[in-house]
Design a binder for these strands. Structure first.
Lengths: 144, 144
DNA sequence: CTTCTTTGGTCAGTCTCTCTGACGGGATCG
DNA sequence: CGATCCCGTCAGAGAGACTGACCAAAGAAG
């Protein structure tokens, strides 16, 4: 029976399922000291490094909260901070060695889950889903 | 440029956008004392009432956390608790008068946002999105 | 019917995450 | 140079989540 679930909740369910899977399998792979909140910020770090304020804006939290989380990630060896060559006020948060390994591991989990979804939906509808979501992003992602 | 965003994040962005909109407009309509956490539990209450444990399971939190949130919702007049006629241990959480009004209000916001999305995507792709998500729910929603 | 186990819910304590407010130091522009 | 804006931090407070311990009712087993 197709219940009348609103589209928001319909989006949330698979999102949550993905997040849960990634954390479970990441923990099993030895990255058991990272929390969902930390990961949501970590995920946004650009390859060349990001400023704290940018991360905060993108994650939708205050810069104080972002600073708190980045402090922890730094202590755990996932990131480090370097001075921003272009701006003396700022520092760049960059992914450290352990961070790169965790990225690699989580990428593998994501691929696995996406493959499962594709098996269930079929390749054509999976591609449609991604295309529609990417399109929707234009009006729902305030940051790019 | 279609970046290689993972499907989880792609799902999260519109979800978060929807949630934000609902809270903003709900607050503007006088329901300014409810928090996202409370709402995530509240949302799951069945028309005939739900048990605390069920709500906790569905929201993915412990029953203690759910109890904490339901206490607040009760104090604010959104729900009330009645004994479960079929089980002396249990009590049913039911939506109270103010709760019904807030449901009505949020339903209106959801419809509005969905209409905006439909305008952007087109009716055909919006329907596709909902159908695919409902299908995906079968393997990502542990509770039905 | 008694005993054991499961289930619904609460109490107590703690930790993580988030926010607001205030601030110091560097950049930018008149 | 002086006014202002932006980057990041410090301090304090509150919300929401967890674990562990517990009680009471229901269900299963003897």
């Amino acid at each position: 029976m197709t219940e009348e679930l609103n589209t928001g909740l319909l989006l949330y369910l698979p999102y949550r399922a993905m997040e849960t899977r990634v954390f479970e399998e990441l923990a099993a792979a030895g990255f058991d000291d990272i929390t969902p909140s930390q990961a949501r910020v970590f995920q946004r770090i650009a390859p060349e490094g990001s400023r704290l304020s940018d991360l905060a804006r993108q994650a939708g939290i205050t810069k104080q909260s972002a600073g708190f989380l980045i402090d922890q990630l730094e202590r755990l060896g996932y990131v480090h901070r370097v001075p921003d060559p272009g701006d003396g006020r700022a520092r760049l948060v960059r992914i450290a060695e352990r961070g790169h390994r965790s990225v690699e591991a989580s990428r593998a989990v994501v691929s696995r889950v996406e493959a499962e979804w594709e098996t269930h939906l079929g390749a054509r509808r999976m591609a449609q889903l991604r295309r529609i979501l990417a399109d929707l992003r234009e009006i729902t992602d305030p940051w790019r």
